[in-house]
Nucleic acid binder design. Structure first.
Length: 772
DNA sequence: TAACTGGGCGCC
DNA sequence: AGGGCGCCCAGTTA
């Protein structure tokens, strides 16, 4: 018998103050029960009768098979009130979110949508009504009970509650502020002793009041919404299971389920960050940002412009200073085609085609703006998607290369430097927003953890259209690893930077092992290159990976590409090891490298040739690596025929089928030709990583000493282990780390891709690694 | 004021 | 027609 479980919570931050206040359970025959707890509006904490916990624990303990929508969330919620008493029974747990992604990776996976899709049931009216009640109750409580903890941005203990945003395509539901206040309507009723609806009354609602029993609906608006959920979950899953079995996907599903406890444990473990180091970095960034900003303002002032710098990225003051201010008020511009009043949107390609969004692509080119040409007068080298001059990083890099020394160049350098530091500062803010003081397990002296904090980033294995995981609150997958130029001398060397020019202190320096611990990071080498190379059988590339120590490429994919697209430049230098790279480091080598990455990410001929600064380069590559391009075509054909591509089948799990990855169509009904190969490769890479994580997690549990995975950055795992001892402390854990490496590489074998992993030891910080 | 859009940028 | 994310800021619109 399947048992569905669902919880309603006061928020998502179970490592902070969020708690469940409603638990509902249903079996597949519709036998339902629920526990609703009053939330103290002054503390947002539920008041839980102890007997309830026993009952819920009993249900979980005795169930044959459980099913939840996003199990990891509910398990974290229940754990925050001590449930279940034992470990969560993952081995009998099914998950509709995992199933939903497998059956339709690029479709929404919220329960409301899936109920409609899989069992034709529309539960949105319940949600709609709850939203109305919550919104009203929130307004009411804010004005009548100002001391109540109504959800809002900045509410202590609930860092995930952010303003309110809605990304239509995404799982935005959770980001709506009212969602955290499902308990509030009832709390108002309780506090004001409003009349309860009678249980046996067949209500006739007039607004929020029942005409028959005079009860107020806010008492039950949450339970009306929440009680059916577990039953819906059960029914959705029954259908999903049937579909998965029919499509031959059930083995994949079962393996995929195993990543849930891994993600759950990673979230619980969290990742340590040094407050001391972050404070130091912050001070440096703040000072340098202010310094660089000051230079910008001063230059502007010198030209007679009162520049108001943006806090980050752009504002009109800055853009007008750099590119001139339009004389005509843009609000007055009319679309020349439809004569609409609000065209405003210049269409792409930088040509300044001022037509509205609807009329784009018509080719009419009228730019009614007359920029005033005083002030900085930067040339336009990059445009935004809507055709306006852009000050993005890439554009500024071009300015730095091409402008003569003078105010323009100085301005751009300082602006770029300021931006970079400001970006890092907003990241740092985010970490502080979510962190807790770190307290070592079993610490006797509370000072042991001083200077260290811990973050519990959220990991979402179904957060992308592919098999990549996403991460949030904070995102552990975009932590800066770049160096940056000294704002004082901009790389020419000075006393402050010690002549180095580059300051390597990025935010990764703040992350690292807490006292008594050490980190190892393990990377799959060239994971996303090896997959298409071996799969297609492209000899030139395979050769590269098989013989990484041999001339003339020494395992470098970029050099291989360079030899093909720049034969005239590469071969004359081929006999001198490293010469091509050395001589053209900032030009041809860099451009080729950019092009290589663009290619992996799916760019087309035009973009590749532009990126590599060599017309015809793409075509040469195609001639030299026909099998690679044939694989791309094969994926395109498959996607066009079926609407999805598949990962390479895993011989150990499901030899017949790979994981289907849906390829969305553009508004013109076509699948973009860049998508299929990219999805296939990216997802196969992630499948490998997922299997690796399952194996590694299982192995580390047997190691003792609290060894765990703390970070996953797509092709990299970071392990947190007890610190070794002696002169070469890494040697203590090295055998275990080697074992982890072989578990990782094994996963390539099952999909036919030979893999290698690289290994680094981090004694103090993620920013500095030692190859050991 | 809230919601929404666009630009920008960090990672792989 | 350059893939996948999360997140922030600025400015406009409902």
């Amino acid at each position: 018998m399947l048992t569905g479980i669902d919880t309603e919570t006061t928020g998502r931050d179970f490592f902070h103050a969020a708690k469940p206040y409603f638990v509902s359970i249903s079996d597949s025959e519709g036998e339902q029960s629920y526990w609703e707890w009053n939330v103290d509006p002054l503390t947002r904490q539920p008041v839980i009768p102890p007997g309830d916990l026993d009952e819920i624990d009993g249900v979980i303990e005795t169930a044959d098979e459980l099913v939840l929508q996003n199990t990891k969330f509910d398990v974290a919620a229940l754990k925050s009130v001590g449930l279940p008493y034992g470990p969560w029974p993952w081995e009998i747990t099914q998950d509709t979110l995992i199933a939903g992604h497998l059956l339709a990776s690029n479709q929404p996976h919220d329960l409301t949508t899936m109920a409609l899709v899989y069992i034709g049931l529309n539960i949105s009216p319940f949600e709609k009504r709850l939203e109305e009640a919550c919104t009203e109750a929130r307004r009411y409580a804010k004005s009548h009970y100002p001391t109540w903890m109504v959800a809002r941005e900045g509410l202590p203990g609930f860092p995930s509650i952010k303003g309110s945003k809605e990304d239509k395509k995404k799982k935005d539901e959770k980001d709506k502020v009212w969602k955290n206040d499902g308990w509030l309507p009832r709390a108002v009723c309780l506090h004001e002793d409003r009349k309860r609806p009678k249980e046996d009354c067949e209500h006739i609602w007039d607004g929020w009041d029942c005409k028959k029993c005079q009860g107020h609906r806010w008492w039950i608006v949450l339970s009306e919404y929440a009680i059916p959920d577990p039953f819906v979950t059960v029914k959705v899953f029954e259908k999903q299971r049937e579909l998965m079995q029919k499509k031959g996907l059930y083995e994949i599903y079962q393996e995929r389920l195993r990543c849930l406890p891994v993600a759950y444990e990673m979230e619980r473990s969290g990742v340590t960050i040094s407050k001391t180091t972050l404070d130091q970095l912050r001070k440096i960034y703040e000072r340098e940002s202010e310094e660089a900003g000051g230079v910008c303002v001063k230059i502007a002032k010198g030209i007679g412009y009162e520049l108001e710098l943006p806090k980050a990225s752009n504002n009109n003051s800055l853009l007008h200073f750099c590119f001139g201010e339009p004389e005509i008020d843009e609000k007055e511009i009319k679309c020349p085609l439809c004569k609409g009043k609000k065209p405003k949107i210049p269409s792409g390609d930088g040509g300044g085609v001022f037509v509205c969004k609807k009329c784009r692509g018509s080719g009419v080119s009228i730019d009614p703006r007359k920029p005033r040409k005083e002030w900085l007068q930067l040339p336009v080298v990059h445009t935004t998607d809507s055709g306006a001059p852009s000050l993005k990083k890439k554009a500024m890099e071009i300015y730095k290369e091409t402008l003569e020394d003078g105010p323009q160049k100085t301005f751009v350098r300082n602006l770029a430097g300021k931006r970079k530091r400001d970006t890092m500062l907003t990241y740092a803010d985010d970490y502080e927003h979510f962190w807790h003081p770190w307290i070592p397990v079993g610490a006797v002296d509370p000072k042991t953890g001083a200077g260290w904090c811990i973050l519990h980033p959220n990991l979402n294995p179904t957060g992308t259209n592919t098999l990549r995981w996403s991460s949030s609150s904070p995102n552990e997958q975009n932590i800066s690893k770049q160096g940056m130029f000294c704002t004082h001398c901009w790389g020419d060397g000075c006393l402050r930077c010690g002549g180095e020019g580059l300051d390597a202190r990025n935010l990764r320096y703040a992350f690292g092992p807490a006292p008594g611990r050490e980190w190892f990071s393990l990377d799959f080498s060239n994971l996303e290159l090896r997959i298409p190379a071996y799969e297609s059988g492209e000899e030139a590339m395979i050769e590269l990976f098989e013989r990484p120590d041999e001339a003339p490429f020494f395992g470098s994919y970029h050099l291989l590409n360079a030899s093909i697209i720049y034969p005239d430049l590469f071969w004359p230098l081929a006999e001198q090891e490293g010469e091509f790279k050395k001589r053209y480091k900032a030009s041809w080598y860099q451009w080729c490298k950019n092009g290589s990455f663009a290619l992996i990410y799916g760019c087309q001929e035009k973009k590749f040739d532009a990126t590599t600064h060599r017309k015809g380069g793409y075509s040469l590559l195609k001639q030299k690596m026909p099998k690679l391009f044939q694989l791309g075509q094969k994926m395109i054909d498959h996607a066009n025929k079926h609407g999805y591509v598949e990962t390479i089948p895993d011989q150990a799990i499901s030899p017949g089928r790979g994981y289907p990855i849906g390829c969305s169509r553009t508004s013109y009904g076509k699948i973009s030709p860049t998508i299929p190969l990219n999805y296939h490769v990216q997802s196969t890479a992630c499948w490998i990583m997922m299997r690796a994580m399952i194996k590694v997690h299982e192995y580390l549990k047997t190691c003792g000493g609290d060894c765990r995975i703390v970070l996953q950055v797509h092709d990299e795992l970071v392990l947190d282990m007890p610190a070794g001892r002696g002169k070469e402390p890494w040697k203590t854990n090295l055998p275990k780390v080697r074992r982890v490496q072989s578990l990782m590489t094994e996963c390539g074998t099952d999909v036919g891709i030979p893999l290698t992993t690289s290994r680094e030891y981090h004694a103090k910080s993620w920013g500095e690694g030692l190859s050991v």
